[in-house]
Design a protein around this nucleic acid. Structure first.
Lengths: 188, 188
DNA sequence: GTCTATATGATGATAGAC
DNA sequence: GTCTATCATCATATAGAC
C-alpha cells in the first residue's frame, strides 16, 4: 500500500473506533506511518480524507450485504442473515455511528456517502422482499418500502442498544423480535 | 435558576446538539452565563456535570414515554404513539446519540444512566404488550421481551436514518413498517 | 461562591526547505 | 512527494486572589 492508501485505511479504522470529531489528522498520520506534509499533499484536509474513507467503507459494506441478502432459502432467512450479529457489534455500525456526529450530519460532503449507502441498502432489502412477494412468501398487500425501512432501522437501533449495554444480547433480542413479527405477526 | 441548575440545563442542551466530545466546558459556561471557577466549584469536571445532565434527561424522557404509552385505545395504538415523530427527530435521540460517542461508551459513569433508561423503556413497552396479551389483543405465545427490544430498536434506528437523510420521512416509514408488522405480519 | 491567570497539551492547518 | 517548523486556537483543568 502506498501512502495515500495507508492514510485511507487508517482513517477508516479510526472513524469506526473514535468517530469523526474524535479522530485527529495526527492520529491518522501516526497509524498510517505517514508524515504531515504527505497527508496534506494527497488530501485537501481531514474532511477530504474522511470522504475517501467513507467511500471505501461503502464498497466493503455492499459486498457484505449482498452476501447476506442472497444467503438462505426463504425471504425471512435472508432478512435474518442481514440481521446476523457480526464480530463488531459493540463498535457500532461504521456508517450509522458517523452520522450521529454533528460535524458529519451538518456537512453535506461527509453526510452524502452515508445517505447514499442507506438508500442502497434499503433498495436491496426491498428487492429481496419483492422477490418474496413474487414467490408467494410475502403478503401481496405488504408495504415493501416501509418494511425495508423498518428492517434497516432495527439493525441500526440494535447497534445502539448493544453499545449502551456493552453487550451483544440486546442486538440478538431485537433481531429475534423482528423475525417473529415478520413470520407470525403479533396481534390475534 | 441558580448557577448549578443553569449549568446542568446548558450541558443538557449542548449534549443533545453537539454530543459529549463535541461539548467543551467553555461552551457550557458561556451558555449558562457562569464563570469557569463557578463550574469547577459545583462539579468535579466535565464528566460529572454531564452525568447530572443525563439524569435530568432521563427524568424528562420518562414523563414523555409514560404519556405516549398510556395514550390510545389499543395496544398497537400505544406502540404507534411511542413511535410518533416529535419536533426533534433530526437532532436524534438525546440518549441514543450520546452512546455512539466512544468517550461515553467507554466510561461507565457516563454510560450507566443511558443503559438504565433503555432498560426502563423496554420494561415499559413490555408491560404495555403484556397488558395487550391479557386483553386478548396480542398472541399468547408472543415473545414479549424480544418484541420490546425490537420496538425500541426501531425508534433508535429511525432516528439514525432520519439524520442521514436530513429528513423525517425515513423515520415515519420505519414506524409505519413496524405497525404493519405488528398488525398483519408479513408472511402469507 | 465567583473571579482571573495560568498550565499543558492537542487541534487542524500552513510555510517553506529538501 | 515528504520533511520539519510554526501558527493560532482550543481543550480540560488548576491556583490563588477576592
Amino acid at each position: 500500500m502506498d501512502s495515500a492508501e495507508r492514510l485511507i485505511a487508517s482513517m477508516q479504522e479510526l472513524l469506526w473506533e473514535r468517530g469523526y470529531s474524535g479522530t485527529s489528522p495526527r492520529a491518522v498520520q501516526k497509524m498510517a506511518d505517514v508524515g504531515q506534509g504527505s497527508m496534506y499533499h494527497h488530501f485537501q484536509g481531514k474532511a477530504d480524507l474522511a470522504v475517501a474513507a467513507e467511500h471505501l467503507m461503502g464498497r466493503e459494506l455492499q459486498t457484505q450485504i449482498n452476501e447476506r441478502l442472497s444467503s438462505g432459502a426463504t425471504t425471512v432467512d435472508k432478512i435474518a442473515a442481514f440481521l446476523t450479529i457480526d464480530e463488531h457489534v459493540l463498535r457500532g455500525c461504521r456508517l450509522g455511528r458517523l452520522v450521529q456526529d454533528t460535524e458529519v450530519a451538518s456537512n453535506d460532503e461527509l453526510r452524502a456517502p452515508i445517505q447514499t449507502m442507506f438508500v442502497w441498502i434499503q433498495q436491496n432489502i426491498a428487492s429481496t422482499l419483492e422477490d418474496g412477494r413474487s414467490n408467494g412468501e410475502i403478503r401481496p398487500d405488504a408495504n415493501i418500502e416501509a418494511l425495508a425501512a423498518t428492517i434497516l432501522a432495527v439493525r441500526q437501533g440494535a447497534y445502539v442498544l448493544a453499545r449502551a449495554a456493552q453487550s451483544e444480547e440486546p442486538f440478538r433480542k431485537a433481531a429475534d423480535g423482528l423475525i417473529e413479527m415478520l413470520t407470525h405477526g403479533v396481534c390475534v
